[in-house]
Structures are given as C-alpha cells and as structure tokens.
Design a protein around this nucleic acid. Structure first.
Length: 430
DNA sequence: TCTGGGGTCCTAGGACCC
DNA sequence: TCTGGGGTCCTAGGACCC
C-alpha cells in the first residue's frame, strides 16, 4: 500500500515576542508586545497581551500609559535577532524531513513522502519538543494531507489548549468535526472581504465552504478560492516550493520617516538609502532588474494636512544590479514628483521584474568591458565590507548621515544577542 | 506628537495586432 | 441598420499572507 503524503505545518507562537523571551526570561508570562519600525504600532503580541485586549496594530501612543505603569512590556523590533532565530528553527525542522518549505520567517511546511510513521501525533510532539529544547521557541504543529488542512490543524492547535499545541488532522472524521466548528474566516486565504461575501451566501464555516462545488466557487470568486475548496476536501493542489526565497519577483525597500519631513534634501537622502538597500538585496540574490517604482506620500492619518501620494514608474534600457544606475534615475524621478509644501511621511523604492544576472547583455555602447568590470569590482568590495562590518559601514554620500531626522525611531531596542559579538549574553558561574 | 514593511497572486480593462 | 473576434501584453487595483 502506498504511504500517503503527509504535510506538517509548524509555526512559532508569537514568534517575535518569543525570540525576546529566549534571551530575557524575565519576560516569560508577562504581557509583551513588539513594535513595528519607528516604534509605531504593536505588530506581535503574547497571549498575555492579547488577553488585555490590545489589538494587533494598536499605535504605541494609545497604550503608552500601560507601558509607563509597567502593566505591559514592549520591545522595538530587532530583525537581525529574528532572522537568526528563524534559521535555527528551520535547521531543527530539517532534521525531521528533507522536504522543508520555509513559508515565512516563523513558519514552515514539512513534507513526509514515503515515510511510514505509526503515530503522527507523537511525531508532532517530538518536533515540538526538539524545537523547544534546541531553540527555546514554543511552536504549534498541525498535521494533515494538504497545506490548507495542515494550517487548519495548526489553528486548532493554538485555539484549543487541551491539544498541547499538536493536532493530527489526517483522519477525515476529525477534519469534518473541526471544519464544522471553524468559522470560514479562519481558513488560510479567506480574509475579511471574502468572509463577508461568503457569509452573505450562507458559507459560515470551513465545512460549508468544503461542501461547495469548486467550479461554482471559481465562478463567483476566482481560481484561488476554488483551490481552497479542493484543499479542504483533501485534494492537494497548492504547489510545493522548496526554494521560496531567492526567487522573488519584486524587492522593496520603504520606510516611514521618524517624523514628518518637508525638505527635499531629506527625501533625497532617504530615497538614496532605500535604493542602495534594494540594490544590495538584488546583488545578494545574484539578480538584476530594468523596472522599478518610486513612491512618496504624506500621512493618510493626518486628515488636517494636505495629502499627496505619488507612484512613479522607472525604467532602464537593460537590467542591472548597479546601485549607481538606479540612484541616478531615482534621483531624476524624485525631481519630477517632489512637491514643496507637504509633510511627507513615507517613501519607498520597489524593484520589479527581477531576473537572473547571468545572461545579462552588457551595454556595448555605454560601458567598455573594462569599465564595467572595475565598477563591478568596486561594488562587490563595498558589499563585502558592509557584510563584514555591518550595514552602511560604506555608503554613498547621497544617503546622508545616521543622525538625519528622517531616520527610524527605536527607543525600545534590545541587544543583538546572537548577531553582534559585544551583545552576546554572559554566563557566570559561582 | 505618536498609526509597519515586504511579499504573492488574480482580474479587469486598455492598447495593439492580425 | 449596422459597428468581428481572438490573442497578447501591460498596468492598476484589489485581495490575501506574514
């Protein structure tokens, strides 16, 4: 008999918060929130914080008094820490299956193809326990035969405490039971808008959705929702993507400013910084691009102010990973869209149509090959130095200085426990 | 005073071509 | 009175995800 393919979905509970707790154990059991860039709003919450009815996306200023009183704890986001903890997490998962699809920084699908496992629930507990012991991260584990069902299983693992964080949903009877009590908006891929439309048609639960014909769902919605129905019925139709990163179609770098910005030279510095960062990512992936977008806008939350939002398409005649080429055209682009008199809040640079850098045509007329090579050698050296000594060690003068007023706020930043030598935790013995 | 950043995929509609 | 049809490419916008 063929062993069915089993898909196990693992994700860390309150991942960003849990990363902080690993290195600051006094935060365990406390209501803890992690802030977005600029310390703007809360983007990750522990159970204890959720219990206090602090919603996702709550602006910091609305809970400032709770923070001051020590009722809740907060940390600025610390992406180097999360990235490093994520790698450790994924490395543990890879000890269980050779097929790991890293879906996001804090979750992954494991595929078990041809494994004969006597008890999936026990296997799930083993995964959970090993990740806990090796990384300190608490995780949920959902086990089923399709991605959508395994996500659903993991939802149940978090929602129902008695599960201990592990749910085996390989049996059709258990699938039915769970789906019947699960609101349709909890299905992966059904957001607010879709849930509203579906409920208007009497689709209230995951089970209701699974009962519909995929063809009629496709007519009313789209092929995406039709696939969801099939997956809920146990028919696997979402692709398995082992190398999800490294094959991006777009690369974005954008930031809100620490405070409103009016001066053109500040915006120029910010844009130069974002362009440089996006091109760095592009080179790190060995890719190039000929199309991009530059955008600039005021704060949509400031009703009292004049609003301005603009999105400019940029194109180069051939794909390149050269920061200088993109800097040049982005600067000209900014000249054409910048308007005096607005309180700008955010800018960004988005590279589109990312392609391999291998087969690129050199521009025979513009650059002699020796000039192209020396420019390559220069930028490679800059990237190497920045990799070794930290981002922005070497940067273009156009990016300005780190004290600039448009820079991010990070008032609650924690040490880079795992990625900076001087921040390594110390252990004392007595 | 203070409201994130970075992605994906799909559809509709216009331009253009034969 | 009548105003092709189909294919492709591109873009904008909307929905979703973490």
């Amino acid at each position: 008999m063929n062993t069915p393919i089993v898909i196990v979905h693992c994700d860390a509970n309150s991942f960003y918060c849990s990363c902080h707790r690993v290195f600051e154990p006094h935060l365990i059991g406390k209501p803890l929130g992690v802030l977005s860039n600029n310390d703007g709003c809360i983007i990750a919450r522990t159970q204890e914080l959720k219990a206090l009815n602090v919603a996702m996306g709550t602006p910091l200023f609305q809970v400032r008094s709770l923070v001051k009183r020590g009722d809740i704890m907060i940390r600025s986001s610390n992406y180097p820490l999360y990235g490093d903890m994520s790698e450790r997490f994924m490395a543990v998962l890879e000890t269980f299956s050779p097929d790991v699809e890293v879906y996001s920084i804090d979750e992954a699908f494991l595929r078990f193809d041809g494994f004969s496992v006597p008890d999936w629930h026990i296997r799930g507990q083993q995964i959970q326990s090993k990740v806990g012991r090796w990384t300190g991260l608490p995780i949920g584990v959902g086990i089923a035969t399709t991605k959508v069902l395994s996500k659903l299983a993991n939802y149940a693992a978090k929602r129902y405490r008695a599960t201990g964080g592990v749910v085996d949903l390989t049996s059709p009877e258990r699938q039915k039971k769970l789906m019947a009590i699960t609101p349709v908006e909890e299905v992966w891929g059904v957001g607010r808008q879709l849930a509203k439309k579906m409920k208007a048609q009497g689709i209230d639960t995951a089970f209701d959705l699974a009962q519909r014909e995929p063809t009629s769902i496709q007519k009313q919605f789209s092929i995406v929702e039709a696939r969801l129905v099939k997956e809920l019925r146990g028919e696997s139709c979402l692709p398995w993507e082992e190398q999800t990163d490294g094959n991006k179609h777009t690369i974005m770098c954008s930031r809100s400013f620490g405070r409103p910005v009016t001066a053109k030279h500040n915006i120029q510095e910010a844009v130069a910084t974002y362009v440089a960062r996006a091109c760095e990512k592009l080179r790190a992936q060995g890719k190039a691009s000929a199309k991009a977008q530059l955008f600039l806008r005021t704060s949509p939350f400031r009703d009292q102010d004049q609003q301005y939002s603009v999105n400019l398409n940029l194109a180069l005649p051939w794909p390149t990973d050269s920061s200088q080429a993109w800097q040049h055209i982005a600067r000209k682009g900014l000249d054409s869209i910048f308007r005096e008199g607005y309180l700008y809040q955010k800018a960004g640079f988005l590279l589109l149509d990312i392609q391999d850098n291998q087969s690129l045509q050199n521009d025979l007329f513009q650059l002699s090959s020796t000039k192209a090579q020396s420019s390559n050698a220069f930028i490679t050296t800059v990237d190497e130095i920045n990799n070794r000594f930290g981002r922005n060690t070497l940067r273009s003068a156009a990016s300005g200085f780190s004290t600039a007023r448009w820079h991010m706020k990070q008032n609650y930043i924690s040490p880079h426990f795992t990625t900076r030598w001087q921040d390594l935790p110390r252990v004392r013995t007595t």
